[in-house]
């Protein structure tokens, strides 16, 4: 089987790439784009570590053959990070001691970004449901849930300040 050319918009920039048959999105992001912030956890679609946003929705990039998402908009942790400072979700994770080894963090933050884009005022249960596909072995989840709720407050108050 031959390689094919796939076009994606990755973190706002249009990219064309030559991919081997069956290449997954995580392969492309990490190996051809150098976007190593997306971490490889299980390659079985069962830990959420490699979560990115595809057209605004969460996707486990280890399970997604890249040829099937031609033309899609992909956002990774690198795209979420603003040029200066941190995104409010990142700030909330940092201030809330919501990282330990840091390996699940990118996936957790991307899930949180998708949740808060859709639901700016989530309940604790909403947050739990949103991250229920993401495994963290260090924290016991409590600090992560708190950080996402804190991020929602940060984003809402920033929006208020902008409106005022």
């Amino acid at each position: 089987m031959k390689h094919s050319v796939v076009s994606l918009t990755i973190n706002g920039a249009e990219r064309q790439m030559l991919v081997a048959p069956g290449s997954t999105l995580i392969d492309v992001l990490r190996e051809s784009q150098g976007l190593t912030g997306t971490r490889r956890g299980c390659e079985q679609g069962a830990c959420g570590t490699c979560t990115v946003l595809v057209d605004g929705k969460t996707a486990m990039s280890c399970m997604l053959p890249v040829e099937t998402i031609e033309g899609a908009h992909v956002e990774t942790i690198e795209g979420l990070t603003p040029p200066q400072g941190l995104h409010p979700i990142q700030e909330a994770f940092l201030q809330g001691f919501a990282t330990q080894c840091g390996f699940c963090t990118s996936g957790m933050i991307m899930v949180a970004a998708a949740l808060l884009a859709k639901n700016p005022n989530p309940s604790r249960e909403d947050v739990v449901r949103a991250i229920s596909g993401n495994i963290c072995r260090c924290t016991g989840y409590e600090a992560i849930i708190d950080a996402i709720l804190d991020a929602a407050v940060r984003i809402r108050s920033a929006a208020h300040a902008e409106a005022a």
Binding site: Q44, S132, Y141
Partner: peptide, 16 residues
Amino acid sequence: DFSEYLMPGPGDIAEM
């Protein structure tokens, strides 16, 4: 895999 190896999820945590 993680669907067979069971661990509590974020919904199963206790008050601490």
